[in-house]
Design a protein around this nucleic acid. Structure first.
Lengths: 206, 206
DNA sequence: CTGTAGATCCACCGAACGGTGGAGGCGCGA
DNA sequence: TCGCGCCTCCACCGTTCGGTGGATCTACAG
């Protein structure tokens, strides 16, 4: 019997999922949680085999919760179930240790098979997600900004000129320019405006 | 008896909603649809009183469907039920003729009361949505970019210089600069980088 | 018909930015 | 210990951008 935990901030979604698994004889929904922190606690207490995890949640999000589960409930397999399949969602989730990644437009039958696969330790990915993963191995390393670079990019997004950013960070204007050059290289752009755009697309910015 | 139609592209969400309304004695779910076009057809055929409409859907989205329903099924009240409450989602939906706007983290009880209110022709808005509306009347016109301005901003976000954007849009570089000045004024920023940032924050850009 | 909003275009100027090719220092793991 | 990644700083130069204050044309509502 597979012990399933549902973590999603929408009561409606939780209800739909619980209902769906009611018919399955080999799966029992042992609990629900509305955010990441509660999900971790529930997974531990209830000894869940599989955790069905949403990514976008208030408080602790799905990625952080997935990472935390590796430490606090290593035997739980995390299956991401979310609406979005952009690289910036998929990659952190996989890195954090998710065993599978499905989209919410999945058919109930697919979802059921995915849960069983996850319980066996097998990976199940939505087709579009597979594409993103393949795209990633082709360009390793690139695309990750350092903390300092993210700070600079955030300031630029907030309207700072190079000089203003330099003042805020207590460094010289020249350093800001150097950071920006590195940012341009990593993001594959040629100016601050499109760097900001890429920053939002990859969810590096707020 | 309130005849309710559910329009949402996620089977899971539809299931959760149908289940939720199963207990209500004065509400009957007469049908479901997975996109806007099907929703319009169903609303007409089934003579729905209230349409529970998602905004983000493949094909015809919720805003377009809401607008179309005013012509094809004027007696149907559209109640938006979605995950997002940004101004750029809320305002078009209200303009298109939605009578209410709820978020998917609403409690089942709230949702039930909202459907009954909508059936009576009363407006129900999520609290955060009310904020957006109030913010809008305070600065009328401001904050809304014209189609042309959105095009320009999108090109800038994609790395175009003023000259390149001008070429793409078959207009002069001077016009691009003028459009950008208007964009800066409306978004309350002073350069293209932060204009792009604001564009993403207000969901004007992809 | 007249006002308003949107789109287009113009000139001028100083300031900021992007490109290039460096350099030194620090911490960490091989 | 040596290399590597990261952060810091420098100079020079051409290009682009932002700010200002206009202008004309069209479409549409009052």
């Amino acid at each position: 019997m597979i012990r399933l935990l549902i973590v999603d901030d929408h009561p409606i979604v939780r209800g739909g999922l619980r209902d769906m698994f009611a018919d399955a004889e080999d799966i029992v929904v042992v609990g629900e949680a509305g955010d990441g922190a509660a999900g971790i606690e529930r997974a531990k207490v209830l000894a869940a085999d599989v955790v069905l995890m949403d990514l976008r949640m208030p408080g602790m999000d799905g990625v952080a919760a997935t990472a935390a589960l590796r430490e606090w409930a290593p035997s739980a397999r995390v299956l991401i179930l979310t609406t979005f399949d952009s690289e910036s969602d998929v990659l952190p989730a996989i890195e954090a240790g998710a065993i599978g990644y499905l989209l919410k437009d999945a058919l109930p039958d697919e979802l059921m098979r995915a849960v069983r696969a996850a319980a066996r330790g097998e990976s199940v990915l939505a087709p579009s997600v597979t594409q993103h993963l393949m795209g990633q191995v082709r360009r390793p390393g690139a695309g990750t900004l350092t903390d300092r670079e993210k700070e600079v990019l955030q300031l630029v997004a907030n309207g700072s000129s190079n000089r203003e950013a330099a003042t805020v960070l207590f460094i010289g204007e020249a350093s800001i320019k150097t950071h920006l050059q590195h940012i341009y290289d990593k993001l594959g752009v040629r100016d601050r405006a499109s760097a900001v755009a890429e920053g939002y697309r990859r969810r590096l910015l707020t």
